[in-house]
Design a protein around this nucleic acid. Structure first.
Lengths: 148, 148
DNA sequence: GAAGATTGAGTCGTCAATCTTC
DNA sequence: GAAGATTGACGACTCAATCTTC
């Protein structure tokens, strides 16, 4: 039923399962590293977009940059605000809009988180050669790239 | 700071970010495929362990096989029971224990889900050569394999 | 005391429905 | 009507605390 050299159906599903599992595992590992800075991967990612964006950013734009749904960033920004890492300001150009702005505390925690992530990231990928990292990156990009 | 040929810190974080994102994306794609059978990846994975286990399985064992925490399968089995796909039976050998048992309906939905997953799995991985699939598998396994 | 399972609280994500403003 | 954001309800996952039984 499967030619020699082909992956069986079971192996195909196992590969996809491993991809999902490895994603979760990685997130857990990064969350662990960020815990020292009082952050999670979701919060850190949001802070990154805000810090590197330079300016206050609308929640819709933030959702787009985070590749998630708008209602998700509404709650994410709620949590960031509760932690004192961001604040909401009204959009001066559109009374419907709300802009998210990093606080000083948010910038500091973001920087601390970056150090922690650099460290654990290096550790996680230490077992790979540069070639392998490039391969992995390319293989993943192809999976994520093609649409539905 | 980074030698030529090395990945920069930014690229390293981007790769890990892509890994997490691709995992979520894949799960969303499989969830979509399973929706026709009234299943999710989590429910299907639990049914798989139960069906292939052959016998009724304790919730602790199921948690172990699913590589997740016990309280998670408590709720997962709650949902399976609510859907009529599994039932809880008392462990005859240990009055503390609870066994999960697939129902006939559960077996049918599991089989239907398998067909849907085979189809979408083939579709998702169609762009890869067998060699690339083996590479991807091996690269992911190495990441997931090494402990903390 | 330790093992098996559950409960309660919290995070992170989705969707459908709503509200205000354009 | 459409765009921006929020709300409520839910799925899936985690942890810490609890309860029963070994």
């Amino acid at each position: 039923m499967n030619r020699i050299g082909d992956m069986t159906k079971n192996e195909t599903l196992a590969l996809l399962g491993m991809l999902m599992h490895t994603g979760r595992l990685t997130e857990a590992r990064l969350d662990e590293a960020l815990a020292g800075a009082g952050l999670s991967t979701a919060k850190w990612a949001a802070l990154q977009r805000l810090v590197e964006g330079g300016e206050a950013m609308s929640l819709g734009k933030l959702a787009e940059r985070l590749a998630c749904v708008k209602s998700n960033v509404t709650q994410l920004v709620d949590r960031l605000e509760a932690d004192g890492l961001a604040r909401r300001v009204p959009d001066p150009t559109d009374r419907r809009g709300v802009l998210a702005q990093v606080t000083d505390e948010g910038r500091q925690r973001y920087a601390a988180g970056r150090l922690a992530l650099d460290s654990v990231g290096r550790e996680l990928l230490a077992a790979y050669t540069p070639d392998e990292l490039a391969q992995l990156s390319q293989l993943l990009a192809r999976l994520a790239g093609d649409g539905h």
